[in-house]
């Protein structure tokens, strides 16, 4: 939901009738979620920002396929983002680079700390992505959507366009493989309760959904 009294569905319908501002409101409402997901897949804030714009351009192109879950386009948008991530170059080629590539932000002295922390984020994210590299693409997508973005099984199923049971089996296999790798590496010391953005443990989220 957008939080401005109108549902995502209504905003999309208005946009389709020629109200560009309505699509702008959808962008404002979901850009954060999409941006976060793109970062979790790409490991770079800058690339994630450009990818976020491409995701919304693609969402506009595919608006007739939009799926609203519980009044929200979030799952569907993350599904569009998943497709964009699968083939970034092809997706980006459809659009003029000026539409999604802004000049880099100026690094001002006051923001030096921010720059450092962003670089640190990227370093940490790359480490996570290295860990996920042992999974195949399907498992990786399911893990990021459920464990990092906090989607329920059903929402992940909508995003990936697969049955809920397939989401469950992919996560189970991913869990098994990660456990195996971590045991072998014997170097993991994870703090308890670290989970997705909602603070819920992924397991609890899943249990609600099944």
């Amino acid at each position: 939901m957008t939080g401005e009294s109108e549902s995502d569905e209504a905003l999309l319908a208005r946009a389709a009738r020629g109200d560009g501002a309505a699509f702008g409101r959808l962008f404002r409402a979901h850009a954060g979620v999409v941006h976060s997901y793109c970062f979790h897949r790409l490991g770079s804030w800058g690339e994630a920002e450009d990818a976020t714009s491409v995701v919304f351009l693609e969402a506009w192109r595919r608006r007739s396929d939009a799926v609203v879950v519980s009044g929200s386009l979030r799952s569907w948008l993350l599904g569009v983002a998943t497709n964009v991530m699968r083939n970034q170059r092809r997706a980006a080629r459809r659009y003029d680079a000026a539409l999604y590539r802004l000049p880099p932000a100026r690094a001002e002295p006051d923001h030096a700390d921010d720059v450092v922390s962003r670089l640190d984020d990227e370093r940490r994210m790359r480490a996570v992505l290295d860990e996920l590299a042992v999974l195949d693409r399907g498992m990786r997508e399911a893990v990021v959507l459920v464990a990092m973005e906090g989607l329920t099984y059903a929402e992940a199923a909508v995003a990936l366009g697969i049955p809920v049971g397939t989401v469950r089996s992919r996560l189970a296999r991913a869990r098994g493989r990660l456990k195996k790798v971590r045991t072998a590496a014997d170097s993991w010391d994870l703090p308890a309760g670290v989970a997705g953005p909602t603070g819920d443990l992924p397991g609890q989220e899943m249990a609600r959904d099944v």
Binding site: M125, A147, M148, L190, A195, P202
Partner: peptide
């Protein structure tokens, strides 16, 4: 479920 937790997640 700890296998799907990522302690380093920014």
């Amino acid at each position: 479920m700890s296998d799907l937790e990522f302690g380093q997640l920014p």
